[in-house]
C-alpha cells in the first residue's frame, strides 16, 4: 500500500478521534468532576451549532460566533443545573432520565423555533491539504490542533485556577471542601455550565463539518457517552485515550474494511474494554484528572 494513502488514513483517523474528543470533552468534565451523566449533552452541542449559525447569519464573523455560542450554552447549562440537576445529586440514573427528557425537549424546541431544516451560511472556512496524490479537508485536520488546545485549556483550568482547585476538592474530599468553606453548589453550577459551554464550543467549531439539524447531536451522543464511561473515574485524561483508541480505531477499520465493520469495531472494543476493566480503564490510576 502506498505511503501517501497510509499517511492520509492515519491523519484522518486522528482527526476523527479528535472530533470525538471535542464532542466528548464537556461530558467528561461533568462526569469526572460531578459524577453526573448528562444525556442532554449532545443537545447542548446542537444548541451551540444553532447559536453560531444564527449569529453568523446576522452578520457576525464565524470566528466571533464561537464565543457567543459558548456563552449561550453556558447560561442555559447554569439554568439547567439550578433547576434540575442540583435536585438530583447522588441519583445517577434519575439524572440520566431527567436529562434524557431534557434532550427530547430541546430537540423539539429547536424544531419549533428553527423548523426541521435551517439554511446554512456561506462564510464558513473551507480549505484543503494535499498529501501525495490524496487531498484532505484542511479544516478537519485543524481539529487535531483544536482538540489538543481544548484539552490543554481544560487541564489548566482545573489545575491552575482557584475554581479548578475548588472543583477538584469538592469531588475528592466533599466534606473537607465543605468544612473549609467551599460553596459546592456554586462550584457545581459552574462545572456543569462549563461542561455545557464545552459542548456549545464543540457544536460551533464543528459547524463546518456537521450541518446544524435538530438531530445532529445524536450522531455524537452515543459514542462520546461510551468513550467517557469506558474512561472511568479519571474522566478527562481517560477520555483522551478512549476517544483516540475507539474513534481512531473505528475510523481506521472503516478505511480498510467497511463502515459497518468500523461501527461494530467501536461497540465490540467498548464491550471488551469494559470486560477487561470493569470499572473503567482509569479505575486504578493514581492521577485524578
Amino acid at each position: 500500500m502506498e505511503l501517501d494513502y497510509l499517511a492520509t488514513i492515519l491523519l484522518s483517523s486522528l482527526s476523527s478521534a479528535s472530533i470525538l474528543l471535542i464532542a466528548a470533552m464537556g461530558l467528561a468534565v461533568v462526569f469526572g468532576l460531578m459524577g453526573v451523566i448528562n444525556l442532554a449533552h449532545s443537545e447542548f452541542l446542537m444548541i451551540g451549532a444553532y447559536a453560531a449559525l444564527t449569529v453568523t447569519k446576522a452578520g457576525v464573523p464565524y470566528i466571533l460566533s464561537i464565543p457567543i455560542a459558548v456563552m449561550i450554552t453556558m447560561s442555559i447549562g447554569a439554568i439547567v443545573e439550578m433547576l434540575i440537576v442540583r435536585r438530583l445529586y447522588g441519583r445517577l440514573f434519575d439524572t440520566m432520565l431527567a436529562t434524557w427528557g431534557l434532550s427530547m425537549f430541546f430537540m423539539q424546541l429547536v424544531v419549533v423555533i428553527f423548523g426541521t431544516s435551517t439554511v446554512s451560511v456561506a462564510t464558513i472556512p473551507q480549505f484543503n491539504v494535499s498529501i501525495g496524490e490524496y487531498s484532505l479537508d484542511g479544516y478537519r485536520l485543524l481539529m487535531i490542533l483544536v482538540a489538543a488546545l481544548m484539552f490543554l485549556f481544560v487541564y489548566l483550568l482545573m489545575t491552575k485556577t482557584v475554581y479548578g482547585m475548588k472543583a477538584r476538592a469538592s469531588i475528592q474530599q466533599p466534606e473537607m471542601a465543605q468544612a473549609i468553606g467551599i460553596d459546592s453548589n456554586r462550584v457545581n453550577t459552574l462545572t456543569f455550565s462549563i461542561g455545557c459551554g464545552l459542548a456549545g464550543f464543540a457544536g460551533a467549531i464543528l459547524l463546518p463539518l456537521v450541518p446544524a439539524t435538530p438531530t445532529m447531536g445524536l450522531a455524537f451522543a452515543v459514542k462520546s457517552f461510551l468513550a467517557v464511561v469506558v474512561a472511568g473515574p479519571v474522566a478527562l485524561t481517560g477520555t483522551v485515550l478512549t476517544t483516540l483508541g475507539l474513534g481512531g480505531g473505528s475510523s481506521i477499520t472503516a478505511s480498510f474494511l467497511s463502515s459497518v465493520i468500523g461501527e461494530v469495531f467501536f461497540f465490540l472494543i467498548t464491550a471488551l474494554l469494559l470486560w477487561l476493566y470493569p470499572c473503567g480503564i482509569s479505575a486504578k490510576w493514581r492521577r485524578k484528572l
Binding site: L88, L97, G101, L102, M104, Q108, V112
Partner: peptide
Amino acid sequence: TLILGVTLILLVL
C-alpha cells in the same frame, strides 16, 4: 415530544 420531555423531567424531580 416537547410535552413528553417536560413531563419526564417533572416526574423524575
